[in-house]
């Protein structure tokens, strides 16, 4: 996986931001480059860095416009990109595990995945748990991690009619991506189970359980273990 970075493009994103476009395609291998660039930016911009938003192929960098001109910020980014090397992947980075109770009551679209894939229930679960996923982006809601890529046999489109209320902890798939809802919200993804993990916690150091670039694996647990871990077994309500 020693590919080189093609010439990244820098695009104006207002008076206080540049968008760095590193890649054109979604790929797990993009992420160590994005996290490496984030660390470089933190060092380079120091206190003039206001925010960063990494996402799949790009990094949006917000700087303090009272201190840096747009040209100065661009120069910082150019030097951050110079000789950039991806974050080291050699085993040290931990894989975060999310326990999931896969069940119709909390994952009503398990049946849909069985139909689409032609796999049995157990096989669907096995396939979802088999891969190590990458966090491509956080968005939609605090701590909501877009992860991929899901085995193509499990690739199903979004629901035609989104649910008004998806319960917190719901584990879902759409297309080649998977995610878990940090708190109750509307949502159009296919629900296949529920995790007891607290994905976003204002009192925890770092707030979000998952971060862009993280490696994640789902682990199937039964109802007893799910409840022991503090999971809420309230079924997903019927769609109105």
């Amino acid at each position: 996986m020693t590919r080189n970075l093609r010439l990244p493009r820098l695009e104006h994103a207002g008076i206080d931001a540049w968008l760095v476009r590193l890649f054109d395609e979604v790929d797990e291998a993009n992420m160590p480059w994005l996290t490496a660039l984030m660390r470089r930016c933190e060092a380079m911009f120091a206190s003039t860095l206001i925010d960063m938003v990494p996402s799949y192929t790009t990094l949006l960098v917000h700087y303090d416009p009272l201190v840096l001109s747009s040209h100065e910020a661009r120069r910082y980014l150019e030097s951050a990109l110079r000789d950039l090397v991806p974050d080291d992947e050699s085993g040290s980075a931990e894989v975060k595990e999310l326990s999931v109770w896969y069940d119709d009551s909390v994952g009503p679209e398990l049946k849909r995945l069985e139909c689409v894939s032609g796999l049995s229930r157990d096989q669907v679960i096995e396939v979802h748990c088999a891969r190590e996923y990458r966090v491509f982006a956080l968005g939609f809601a605090p701590g909501f991690a877009f992860m991929g890529r899901v085995d193509e046999r499990l690739a199903v489109p979004r629901l035609d009619t989104p649910r008004q209320r998806v319960p917190a902890g719901s584990v879902a798939v759409t297309g080649r991506q998977t995610a878990a809802y940090p708190r109750q919200s509307p949502g159009g993804w296919n629900l296949i189970g529920r995790t007891p993990a607290r994905l976003f916690d204002r009192h925890r150091d770092g707030f979000s359980l998952l971060r862009v670039g993280d490696r994640v694996r789902f682990v199937s647990v039964d109802r007893v273990e799910f409840e022991r871990l503090g999971g809420d077994t309230t079924p997903v309500e019927e769609r109105s």
Binding site: A13, L19, V53, P54, S55, L60
Partner: peptide, 10 residues
């Protein structure tokens, strides 16, 4: 497009 970071006023 592939989702990307959105600045204020986009």
């Amino acid at each position: 497009m592939i989702s990307e970071g959105i600045p204020l006023g986009a």
